[in-house]
Design a binder for these strands. Structure first.
Lengths: 226, 226
DNA sequence: CACCAGGCTGAATGAACGTTTAGCATTCTG
DNA sequence: CAGAATGCTAAACGTTCATTCAGCCTGGTG
């Protein structure tokens, strides 16, 4: 993994190799793996397309390096945030603190599929599982099906704010990944949880839960041709 | 919009045109717009690539038809679910009731960008905004910045379970978009809201809110080269 | 100085793929 | 029945793009 905090890190990151990687991170995030081209990446990095091949071998190789760099940056960030609060809340904090470049890359990778994205989702779900079981052991017995489902859904919901950052930013009128705007997203999540809790513990909760269960039957899959 | 419930709908959907559209929906969802090829779509639909051009003009034209079909299916579904519960809970119910084909297409479109995806996100956020303001008018004054942010974040979190369905399915051990498994996701969301409410209204909530705010300063954007 | 290794360039190559074109078959229509 | 329109196929075309190749430049080393 080339995100180690060893000696030559900062210096090495000024090289053309690092510029290519950063440009690729941005292009993959914006246009996806297939949509990104050597030419655009090379232009953004201020190098020739030949140099990309020289350093990374192939487009797939470049993707792999981006993948490892992004997940490495996330894990570094998570570790440096005092391992104490390695629970769920801390995980999302790390995701947002890792920097926009890697975050946007991983956001897209979560949908296009990549080892790093899978690792990130699993890490979030694992931490959520620990958190839920530790906080409500009676409601969420460790290792049970209920925690597993809840943790996975919780991970998906939280990462949803990352993956859908473009839409979120549009609705909020500001870049949701800009550190200056993080408090707005954080406050919104806190508000939602605090208030929706009332809603779901009340009578409405039972109604909705029941409605969800019945919806599984009433559904009509229109358009079943062929 | 060709998802109207007019007379010839069902019959027309047995045509090659409909088969192409359905195959495109699936390919675009699986491989993305750029990753999908005429050949794969044509093979899946059992037609020649020339016929795609004949019916849709170009790849972009095919995408537009998929877009309109998917959002049309969603809106039809929302309308048919008794407009009464058109609030947020009903919106997500419609998303999951619209069928896996359109849902998976829109999941990917939400990240790659498309008019239909934007319309869907906005619809979800708008309904969330109405719901939040109507339910907690003192906490969320209608038209204020707090509701707007909370509604956008809520929309992102809920749609996160759609966009990240591949990861969710992997963790849950079953296809999260299969109607048979909807109760699991629904129950998980209900559990999360019911319990996290306790957490955030307690002392922890204040701590986390504060931590989020301070994190906006303490962040270090490593890797600022170039 | 001679030499060479590694960073780097730019054009050539070849495959993948969207698009175009020509034409066949079937079905309406007057 | 003539003929026009529609659904459809198959091959050719041209572009885009990842990959390859030949070689330049610079700095360090014997």
């Amino acid at each position: 993994m080339d995100t180690s905090d060893t000696d030559g890190r900062a210096a090495a990151d000024l090289t053309a190799r690092a510029r290519i990687r950063d440009a690729a991170l941005a292009e993959f995030a914006d246009r996806g793996f297939k949509g990104a081209t050597f030419q655009t990446i090379a232009d953004a990095a201020g190098v020739s397309t030949g140099l990309i091949r020289h350093h990374f071998g192939s487009k797939e190789g470049l993707r792999r390096v981006c993948d490892e760099h992004a997940i490495g940056t996330l894990l570094d960030q998570a570790r440096s945030s005092l391992g104490a609060e390695a629970a769920e809340p801390g995980f999302m904090a790390s995701v947002y603190a890792m920097g926009a470049a890697s975050a946007r890359y991983l956001a897209r990778a979560l949908v296009e599929g990549s080892p790093a994205a899978t690792e990130m989702f699993d890490a979030g779900s694992d931490l959520a599982e620990q958190f839920l079981s530790a906080t409500w052991p009676d409601r969420f017995p460790a290792g049970g099906a209920a925690v597993r489902d809840a943790a996975a859904v919780m991970g998906a919901m939280h990462l949803g704010t990352l993956v859908l950052h473009a839409h979120l930013s549009r609705r909020m009128g500001a870049d949701s990944l800009d550190p200056a705007n993080l408090p707005r997203t954080g406050a919104a999540i806190a508000d939602i949880y605090a208030l929706m809790g009332d809603y779901f513990t009340g009578a409405q909760g039972a109604l909705i839960t029941e409605a969800v269960a019945s919806a599984a039957h009433g559904k009509d899959e229109e358009d079943r041709d062929e």
